[in-house]
Design a protein around this nucleic acid. Structure first.
Lengths: 169, 169
DNA sequence: ACTTTATTTCATTTTTTATTGAAATAGATG
DNA sequence: CATCTATTTCAATAAAAAATGAAATAAAGT
């Protein structure tokens, strides 16, 4: 192999620069909301693809496994980021990126952030009763902290609907 | 060993229920912004501790390693979540949770979110010029997508300062 | 109904990320 | 300034997360 040239993965048809940019960008966004690289890759290719792609085409382009493609598409469909489109005369399912980008931010807020805040507020209740066991001074200090945290979480809870509204337009 | 009793880690003095609740909660929050378990643990104990703790005490309570404690405290100080406090007559540094919880949300937004949006907007520029190579039809389709994404990112950029203001009070 | 093709599932393997702890450094103390 | 103690760093290891691919299932075609 000539120096300076990297071996490319066997059956992977080379990605265009456009595809690479798109993939890198979405890998980043998706990782931010806790989704893995392969999911970002899939959305990345679909986002710049002029037509819907079959799972085999996605596997081919990205050089990812069957399992990763199947599971990744499942997740992407479940958050509304990808939809299956019917292609006449084709047996296979075909997939296209849904352009309503706000959808997955919304899904993330509703399914991750909101429940996490709720859970934390419950925990504060628990902690407040546990703090009753402490010595009066320590208890007062603990309660002050818990109050601050509670206040802050409540602000968060109030803010989320505003963000949602803003995202949806 | 009597059935139903778990072996406890050697030098770890048992954590109170209050500490456990706090730790679990903060592990969750910190993981959300990409910080590891040990960092959540450290902040968790400090948050409910009536007094500042030395690194050794933290290591002791949590049963974590020297390295994890040192690095964790470094990160926590860097985002303003923990401060070193002077304890008269004590040689060691002592650490206390900073209660301005908004600090690390702010740090996260400014150091993670904001730069990521900036980077993505740059990428869109790149992608727009790459799209010029495409056939007229495909190009039009790609540009429509890129416009949508750009618009959405710009909304995000506008929203972040509002969130910051809201968090700070 | 059978055969072929597509898709999903999940135990195993690989990769990535976090933690450990020993060595290096920095900081006090006498 | 020598010694002891505390802290940081970083290469090695362990733990967690993601990807693989073969087997199971489902769906389509003949």
């Amino acid at each position: 192999m000539p120096a300076g040239l990297k071996e490319t993965a066997p059956e992977t048809s080379a990605l265009s620069d456009l595809e690479v940019e798109s993939i890198e960008m979405f890998i980043g966004f998706f990782k931010l909301i806790g989704l893995q690289k392969s999911i970002g890759e899939i959305y990345g290719v679909l986002f710049v693809s002029p037509r819907a792609l079959s799972m085999e085409e996605i596997i081919d382009r990205l050089g990812i496994s069957l399992g990763a493609a199947s599971q990744g598409l499942k997740v992407l469909r479940s958050v509304g980021a990808v939809k299956a489109v019917y292609v006449p005369g084709e047996r296979r399912d075909h997939f296209a990126a849904d352009l309503e980008l706000s959808k997955f931010a919304t899904a993330f807020i509703k399914e991750d952030l909101q429940p996490r805040l709720d859970r934390a507020l419950q925990r504060i209740e628990t902690m407040e009763s546990l703090a009753e066991e402490m010595s009066p001074m320590d208890r007062a200090a603990a309660e002050e902290r818990l109050e601050k945290l509670k206040h802050w979480l409540e602000r968060g809870e109030k803010m989320l609907p505003l963000i949602l509204k803003f995202l949806v337009h």
